[in-house]
Design a protein around this nucleic acid. Structure first.
Length: 245
RNA sequence: GUAAAACACUG
């Protein structure tokens, strides 16, 4: 199985996906039993190669051949569903995994959060995030960013802000894009004062607001009819040679 | 012999 794994991996990786599939079939025909590592590699490679439907097919093969999917198998399948837009399946899978008795590790949590945010289910992503923290895992910077951006997109500003605060207490170095995003979201729901606070914070942190940031702020100000401040902001944009829209 | 991943206004 080790040899077959390597063969399948390399064929698919180098674009010879069809040969990869043939090797798998051949292996089965010859009575050689695939193991779970082979299946995980096979699914992962197919996913990267863009054969998303294949991921699901392979997953089905696992049980058919008397293997038991492990936590990684579920994570890969989840990525597949999220990539193909199968939103319901993606979000259900995380719970299925747990029901199978697997305790997700930090990576499994992160993948779940990422998939959920991409499926526009940031709310669920947030729940998974809370669970992750409760279990004592430390999310990576990207996980915070993905979640904050996802929540902002769905205008869940309370949650976004909460995650934002938590990121800071973990000394995460959030970049300007995240701040701009948050300002944008706060502006959209009319929380202009908070948008300003966030703006001031960027300055304190030594981050340099760019044209995206200022445009976000400008949009927020116009929306809340703070014309004077909008003009002020517009002025400072011109001073810093940013282009307004 | 098997892990993933993101980002910004307006249009």
């Amino acid at each position: 199985a080790v040899v077959y794994t390597s063969l399948i991996k390399n064929f698919i990786r180098w674009g010879r996906t069809h040969s990869g599939h043939e090797i798998y079939k051949d292996m089965v025909q010859r009575g050689c039993s695939p193991d779970i590592i082979l299946y995980n590699v096979y699914m992962d490679c197919s996913l990267r190669a863009g054969e998303i439907d294949k991921v699901h097919d392979i997953f089905m093969e696992i049980k058919k051949h008397g293997c038991v999917p492990d936590a990684r198998s579920y994570s890969i399948l989840m990525r597949g569903h999220s990539k193909s837009g199968n939103i319901c399946a993606a979000s259900a899978l995380f719970y299925t995994t747990k029901n199978q008795g697997y305790e997700p590790n930090a990576l499994a949590f992160s993948i779940a959060i990422d998939c959920l945010c991409k499926s526009r289910k940031a709310y669920e992503g947030y729940q998974v995030f809370e669970e992750m923290r409760a279990k004592g895992h430390s999310p990576a910077l990207v996980t915070y960013v993905v979640l904050i951006n996802g929540l902002v997109k769905e205008l869940q500003l309370d949650k976004a802000y909460s995650v934002f605060k938590q990121a800071k207490t973990q000394d995460m170095l959030l970049n300007m894009a995240v701040y701009s995003n948050l300002i944008n979201g706060l502006g959209k729901v009319g929380r202009i004062n908070e948008a300003f606070l966030v703006m001031e914070e960027t300055v304190q942190k030594g981050l340099i607001p760019n044209m995206h940031t200022l445009n976000c702020l400008l949009g927020a100000l116009v929306k809340s009819q703070e014309i004077n401040k909008a003009l002020e902001c517009f002025q400072s944009m011109q001073d810093s040679k940013c282009t307004a829209n």
